[in-house]
Every structure is written in structure tokens, then in C-alpha cells.
């Protein structure tokens, strides 16, 4: 078995198992940490797909910054743990079972739909040059320059919005 295939299964298993546990866990701190594990598995998959830059960016931005934000919020809102545990139990008894079944049906449907495309070039024309960071940077700043500027404004708006929403101004809302 080629090494790449083994690595794919290892990282895919890590990603799927940790993601499943994220959704099932009752303690939100554990959920956040398991999601970080999922990101690391996905980063491994990105490296296998010849995208080391995006893999590292994912770890820096997603796992290193966004998840820290989640963790801070979870710790800040440390509602008494029992309440957090109770609030994920669903009242109707059969809802979760039906939900699980529907999820499995959805997954099967997605898998069927996605694998029906046969007209793609399965073997990649390996243009390694187009994957280098320099090439990606050039494309971002030339073809996708508008998207780049738009996302910077988006981040600015998000920052201002987050600070405004979360600040304590009594009597303003």
C-alpha cells in the first residue's frame, strides 16, 4: 500500500472521529479541543494535496486564533457546568435518533452525488510551479485583488462589530 494512501486514511480517520466527537460532546471545552484536532487532521490532508501553505495558514488562523477566541468565550461564559450539560439534551426522546438517521441518509446522498462526475482528469497534471507561495501570492494580488480588498474591509467591519456587540454599555440595548 503506498504511503500516500495510508497517510490519507490516517488523517481522514483523525478528521472524521474528532469531528464526530465535537458534535457529540457535552462539554464545550472538549468540543473546541477536538475541533482543533480535526483541523490538524485536515491540515495533514492539505499537505497530501500539495497545499502546504494553506495547511499552515489553517493552523495559524483557524486552529491558532479562531479557536483561541472560542475557548476564551467558553471560559468567559462559564455558566455553571451542569446547566451547560443539561442544555444539550433534547426534550423529545426520538428526535436525536431520527436526526441521526437523516444525517446518515444525507451523507449517503452526498457521496452518491459527488462521485457521479466521471468527466474529470483523475491524474493531476502536476504543475508544481503553480502551487508555490510566490505563484499563489501573485494570483491573489492580480486576479483576486478585489476579493482581497473586500475581505480586508470585511475583517475591519467584523472587528468593529464584535467589539461593539460584546461591550458593556448598559442602557443602550
Amino acid at each position: 500500500m503506498p504511503v500516500n494512501l495510508i497517510l490519507f486514511y490516517v488523517f481522514a480517520a483523525i478528521a472524521v472521529i474528532t469531528t464526530l466527537l465535537v458534535v457529540v460532546q457535552s462539554n464545550p471545552v472538549y468540543s473546541v479541543l477536538l475541533l482543533i484536532g480535526s483541523f490538524i487532521g485536515l491540515a495533514g490532508l492539505y499537505v497530501l494535496l500539495n497545499a502546504p501553505f494553506v495547511a499552515v495558514i489553517q493552523i495559524i488562523v483557524y486552529a491558532g486564533a479562531i479557536m483561541v477566541l472560542f475557548l476564551f468565550v467558553v471560559m468567559l461564559l462559564n455558566a455553571p457546568r451542569e446547566e451547560v450539560v443539561q442544555s444539550n439534551l433534547i426534550d423529545a426522546s426520538g428526535t436525536r435518533a431520527i436526526g441521526g438517521l437523516l444525517a446518515i441518509a444525507f451523507a449517503a446522498e452526498l457521496a452518491w452525488a459527488l462521485t457521479r462526475s466521471r468527466g474529470l482528469a483523475v491524474s493531476a497534471p502536476d504543475e508544481r510551479a503553480s502551487y508555490s507561495v510566490a505563484a499563489i501570492g501573485q494570483r491573489i494580488f492580480q486576479e483576486y485583488a478585489f476579493a482581497f480588498e473586500a475581505t480586508s474591509i470585511l475583517i475591519l467591519v467584523a472587528m468593529v462589530g464584535a467589539v461593539t456587540l460584546a461591550s458593556r454599555h448598559s442602557g443602550k440595548r
Partner: peptide, 11 residues
Amino acid sequence: VAAAEAAVGLA
């Protein structure tokens, strides 16, 4: 975009 959305969502 996910970063921006997570920040606002958490706020």
C-alpha cells in the same frame, strides 16, 4: 470569512 463570522457570532 470564517474568522470574521466566528468573531461576530461569538460577540
